[in-house]
Design a protein around this nucleic acid. Structure first.
Length: 434
DNA sequence: TATCCACAGGAAATCAGGGTGT
DNA sequence: ACACCCTGATTTCCTGTGGATA
């Protein structure tokens, strides 16, 4: 920007100076991150005890049973397992057990799970991300386990295990993993599955259930008081002294308790509130900051989600957006979305149009993400469809979409579907619906 | 009351892209 | 170059269905 004949850039020196001289909020910000493992896990005693008793035999060189951990998000499943693994290592005299964590939302296919385990043990990317037959890798893995982890135990922790269970070949890989020990000589393995869906067992092969699902631990949700205790502990580590105003922690706890007692959410709120206070140069964190944090977290989550969607999904959402703004709140049905999406793809070289079936899946995904609501509705003689409503702020959506280069140019496009004044059969239906 | 619309949504097949070892 | 591997996205094929209409 040009001002008084001079360029005025952002003054980074001044900014850093102000930051350093400003009030200090955080002592150790990491303590509020999900990855942080505290020395104590408040209110997880029963769960810790159960897992400890299942895994204790590893100290004597025996093989612990495979088991599952259930519980909503933010109930401390992963943290507890990591906590146990640390404690177990402390008490192991000789060869310490191996712990291999696999997050199935990232390592999401059978092949990659095997490759991930192998690569983690050797400590380098020996197995390429694709290309080899699975059984070849399986044999290599068996050899490696016996060779490298002889006379010790390898815990395989499958986080979000439900995500692979219903995939192609998902049950096979789980079955193979549960029976690793039968093919090993000197190494022992123990499989631990973590899931936040209780009914995920339904999609498991009975053979897998018999060896993995017989034993399970259910993590109860935290209530507001328990969340408060967790937050207090972490706040002591994370923040400087006396910067929390009265009522900040109870508010965070109460807000998170509403969301099925999600501790992760509670910690996020507290961290974000701290960041807002810091950003606005406040000396203390107030309840006001927490409320703002709540708002910002929601926004951030939606924005990130939309930006992270595949282009086709973004186009489906754009179609919904365009119909919404150009049509005076006309009822939106799935057929419309399909047609407008088709129009949009025709305007974009290199992007193919999709079938109704595929669009239907995208609509479901958007609905699941809470961006739209989709209600099944029968129109009698005029068929059955889904009535779709945008569930987030139009301005927010517009802002987010306009940051996506390929979509930006489409935001002023008025769909033919709407321009078309021709009376279609559907128009009767719309009268009926509205 | 049988019909028929406009889809829903499951299962399996297909395609393209990024790989492998020989 | 060739045959074959794994994956994710999508298509193809399909059966199912609530309720206004004829």
């Amino acid at each position: 920007m040009l001002k008084n004949g001079k360029y005025h850039n952002f003054n980074i020196d001044q900014f850093y100076k102000n930051y350093l001289n400003g009030p200090k909020i955080f002592k150790k910000r990491d303590a509020l991150e999900p990855a942080y493992i505290p020395n104590e896990l408040p209110h997880r005693d029963t769960e810790i005890k159960e897992i400890a008793s299942k895994t204790a035999c590893a100290l004597r060189g025996d093989t612990p049973p495979n088991f599952l951990c259930y519980g909503m998000t933010g109930t401390g499943k992963t943290a507890t397992i990591r906590y146990i693994s640390q404690k177990l290592a402390q008490f192991t005299k000789k060869s310490k057990p191996w712990w291999i964590y696999i997050n199935c939302s990232i390592v999401s296919t059978p092949y990659r799970i095997l490759a991930h385990i192998y690569n983690t043990i050797v400590g380098q990317e020996k197995i390429p991300p694709t290309g080899l037959p699975k059984d070849v890798i399986f044999k290599k893995l068996l050899g490696l386990l016996d060779h490298k982890i002889s006379n010790s135990i390898c815990f395989l922790v499958l986080d979000e295990i439900d995500l692979i269970a219903d995939k192609r070949g998902g049950n096979e890989i789980l079955y193979d993993l549960t029976r690793l020990n039968e093919n090993l000589d000197s190494c022992r393995t123990c499989l631990i599955g973590i899931s936040n869906k209780l009914k995920f067992k339904d999609s498991l092969d009975p053979r897998v259930i018999s060896s993995l699902g017989k034993e399970h631990i259910t993590f109860s949700t935290y209530n507001a008081k328990e969340l408060g205790d967790i937050l207090k502990e972490r706040a002591k580590i994370a923040f400087c002294d006396d910067i929390l105003k009265e009522g900040v922690i109870p508010l965070c706890a109460a807000l998170a308790a509403k969301e099925h007692g999600d501790a992760r959410k509670a910690l996020q709120l507290l961290r974000k509130a701290g960041e807002i206070a810091e950003r606005t140069q406040n000396k203390m964190i107030t309840r006001e900051h927490v409320n703002k944090a709540q708002h910002e977290l929601e926004r951030d989550h939606i924005i990130d989600y939309i930006k992270g969607m595949p282009l086709q999904a973004q186009l489906v959402l754009t179609a919904i957006y365009l119909i919404t703004i150009f049509s005076n709140d006309r009822v939106i049905v799935s057929g419309d979305i399909y047609e407008v999406h088709d129009e949009l793809t025709n305007k974009m070289p290199g992007v193919r149009s999709l079938t109704r079936r595929r669009i239907s899946d995208y609509i479901n995904e958007l609905s699941l993400a809470g961006i739209i609501t989709a209600a099944k509705k029968s129109l009698g003689y005029y068929g059955r469809t889904k009535v779709i409503n945008l569930d987030i702020d139009k301005k927010l959506l517009e802002g987010t979409l306009s940051h996506i280069a390929k979509i930006k140019t489409l935001l002023n496009y008025k769909p033919v579907l709407i321009q078309n004044k021709k009376v279609r059969i559907k128009n009767n239906v719309f009268r009926k619906l509205s």
